[in-house]
């Protein structure tokens, strides 16, 4: 990692993110990689709150607060305006949560990338609507408790595979990244900045409050998600060329699940079933990457 990149800072102290917030770590990394020539479009999400009440801002770059469902559309407009002004250098970044990406902002995102708008869409994924009170989203994983999937009614549906949805749009660059792997995250963000067209990075950003984990464990949990293949690190170029960036040893998913309060109701059978689902997804990814014939 280049020290001068790691050393620059675009997030002020004093923001109101929860202690141990993974989304804030993700923001720090992405802005370090993109630099000051960046305009951010911020649909409703945790970060709309984290950045502080009017007239404060926790970010050193221009930010446009946008409506929940408009991340893709607003970014398209900002890009068009910049292009008209002859500014092709500035990166347009949409910074959205999983709700604003997987669910509410989905059509605007799909439309923008279908047009191959020249912008970078980052989804920081904390696997539920966290700032409104931990309601389930289509990103909430199988087995999770949320305030809308309580008790024995825990979520029994799989998490939407948003990366594959974006890959299906055949855009130039789609990648997953994790706050626990800064080198990889910074490299992918820089690669996205240098790629023309629509880019999508899916960042795994743990949420101590919503996941019922101690604040000091948020990076550890994010690392375990990668180590257990629950959240593999890979990138896809032009919708075809898959590269897996990290091949973990055979860690068991139960190690990851048993550390989190949102999964504490799961039985051994449930965990075995989840292990099978994770293995299946991993095998599928290996096939796509050409590591299995």
């Amino acid at each position: 990692m280049l020290t001068e990149i790691m050393d620059r800072e675009f997030v002020y102290s004093g923001h109101v993110g929860c202690p141990g917030c993974g989304a804030t770590i993700a923001m720090r990394f992405v802005l370090k990689a993109l630099g000051e020539k960046t305009i951010m479009v911020l649909p409703a999400c945790c970060w709309s709150v984290i950045t502080g009440p009017y007239p404060l801002s926790a970010l050193k770059i221009p930010v446009i607060h946008a409506a929940f469902e408009t991340g893709g559309a607003t970014a398209s407009g900002v890009r068009a305006a910049l292009d008209m002004m002859g500014d092709t250098e500035t990166t347009v970044l949409t910074w959205a949560g999983d709700g604003g990406t997987f669910d509410i902002g989905f059509q605007a995102l799909s439309g923008a990338v279908e047009r191959n708008e020249n912008f970078l869409y980052v989804c920081y994924d904390n696997e539920a609507y966290m700032n409104t009170g931990i309601q389930r989203s289509s990103s909430t994983p199988y087995g999770a408790w949320t305030t809308t999937t309580t008790g024995q009614d825990w979520k029994r549906l799989r998490k939407k595979n948003i990366v594959e949805v974006l890959v299906a749009h055949r855009i130039p660059y789609v990648a997953t990244a994790s706050i626990a792997f800064p080198d990889d995250l910074l490299r992918k963000t820089q690669k996205a900045r240098e790629t023309k067209g629509s880019k999508f990075i899916h960042i795994y950003a743990s949420c101590p409050t919503g996941w019922r984990i101690p604040s000091e464990m948020s990076v550890k949990i994010a690392r375990m998600a990668v180590q257990t293949n629950i959240f593999p690190l890979y990138e896809v170029e032009d919708g075809r060329k898959y590269t897996i960036n990290y091949k973990p040893k055979e860690y068991l998913v139960r190690e990851y699940f048993k550390l989190q309060g949102r999964f504490k109701h799961l039985t051994d059978q449930d965990l075995d079933q989840i292990q099978q689902m994770v293995n299946e997804d991993w095998e599928l990814l290996l096939h796509k990457a050409g590591d299995r014939s």
Partner: peptide
């Protein structure tokens, strides 16, 4: 169009 003009550094979150 409301535009922010201060940073969050006035918010001393160390009190948390």
């Amino acid at each position: 169009m409301p535009i922010t003009y201060l940073t969050t550094e006035s918010n001393k979150t160390g009190s948390w």
